[in-house]
Simulated scan of single mutants.
Amino acid sequence: MPKAINNDIKNILIIRLSSIGDVLKCTVVIDKLRNHFPNARISWLVETKSKDVLLGNPNIDEIIVWQRKEWSKQARSSKNYWKFARQLFQFTKEIRNRNFDLVVDIYGAPRSGIISYLSKAPVRLCYTGSRKYSHLCANIHAVPDYTTSTTATQFYADILRPLGIDRDDLRMQMPILPADRSFAETFLHDHGISPGKYIAINPSTSWQSKCWPSEYYARLADMIIEKHCLPVVILGAPGDVPLVETITRQMQQQPVDASGKTTLRQLAALAEKAGAFISGDTGPLFIAEAAGTATISIFGPTDPAWHAPKGERHITLSTNSCSCKKSFCEDKKCLTAILPEHVLTTFEELAKKIGLIEHHAIK
């Protein structure tokens, strides 16, 4: 990228839509852009479900929420597709009127590519070979280097190389606000739980195929409570309440059911204060990672080498993950082969390492 153009960058738009986990992983680019362009205004285009991941980030000046799915749902129910078209037109017009100098399209899908192109930004960055030719809407391209980009966060950070920004720190960023920490402290106090002395379990995922069986979670939670006298807090969004109720009905012990009782940011605060976090491949797992909490992740149809948390405080379990990437699976053999007893042993190994339980407490 020519230095003259680089120096002219004053107004930046990052586009990363889709799921909570994917948006969170892309936050590795924020501080790099801020350090490289200290005087620039940085905005992020995101969908409604993932906006809370970005709220409170000091390196983001504005969060632009694209209500595409809400508009689409309204159009289908009312059959008023002209209104949907007008909403899209007005939205793209507002993006163009913001006069962005640089668009970083990390999403790389047709809709993000079109938004990037219609922004009329003089510098539009995307990966080459992005999905369905969205890179054709960009005029500067990052070439994937799979010899060094061995994880999702490394891959996302590498998109900045054409700007002269090297990959170094790969920490995800999700600031937890004082009000959310206050909620977590009150919640734990009301249930007689000490911060750092409980296990958080998040059993739900966005794909049926990524969900470890409910009876397995029930058995694991029972063993943790019975053997180590550690409280278990089960987390989940409002839509996860039926699953969590199924798990609690299958248990002999009594966990704390927090499903449907928190916002995403309050969930993050509870994850931050947990001694350890157990989950499948889903957004809250990466929230816990970003918060610095030790994690045990259970992977099935997705690639743990690419997606799973890395480091001494994180352990991933998989049966040489099939990586089929199917959102639905009838038998889920790759997950059912991971038994609760195996996860308990892994938990005990991690808990000893981080000082959550003592060596002699394991019999």
Rank of each mutant, 00 (worst) to 15 (best):
K332C: 09
C137P: 01
H359T: 13
T27W: 00
E185W: 11
I115W: 01
L33E: 01
I106R: 00
S209I: 13
I95A: 08
T246F: 00
K49G: 12
G275W: 00
N59P: 05
S19A: 15
A109P: 02
T151H: 09
D257T: 04
L356M: 06
I64F: 03
K363E: 08
L88K: 13
F37I: 08
F37W: 02
G300P: 01
Y146T: 13
F100C: 14
H141P: 11
T48P: 14
S77F: 04
R86I: 14
S78P: 08
C126K: 11
R41M: 08
I201M: 01
G239R: 09
P238E: 01
G113S: 10
I95H: 02
H360I: 11
P203L: 03
F89E: 09
T316I: 10
D52E: 14
F347W: 02
V123E: 05
V244R: 08
Y198G: 03
P284A: 02
P255T: 11
P213E: 11
L24N: 04
R86L: 13
S18N: 07
H314Y: 10
Q154M: 11
Y198T: 02
K69F: 09
A288T: 08
R249K: 15
I201S: 00
I165N: 01
T302Q: 06
V104I: 13
Y216W: 09
M251Y: 04
N57I: 03
D190Q: 14
G280D: 12
I362N: 04
H307I: 14
A271V: 12
F155W: 04
T92I: 05
A290K: 01
A85H: 11
R181N: 14
Y133K: 12
A152W: 04
S194P: 06
A305T: 08
T319Y: 03
V46C: 07
K325A: 13
F347K: 00
A237S: 15
A271Q: 04
E185K: 15
K51C: 12
E330C: 06
Q67F: 07
P255L: 03
V23L: 01
Q252E: 10
P175I: 05
T263D: 07
P309E: 13
V123D: 02
D222R: 01
T319A: 12
G236T: 05
K73E: 08
F100H: 10
A142E: 05
G56H: 01
Q67D: 06
P195E: 06
F299V: 06
N320L: 13
S323A: 12
R219K: 11
S130L: 11
Q250V: 04
H314M: 09
V233G: 05
S119Q: 03
W212Q: 10
V23Y: 03
D257W: 02
G192Q: 06
Q154D: 06
D240G: 10
I224L: 05
K69I: 12
K363D: 10
V46R: 03
D52N: 10
K10H: 08
K325F: 15
G192H: 07
R171Q: 08
D180P: 02
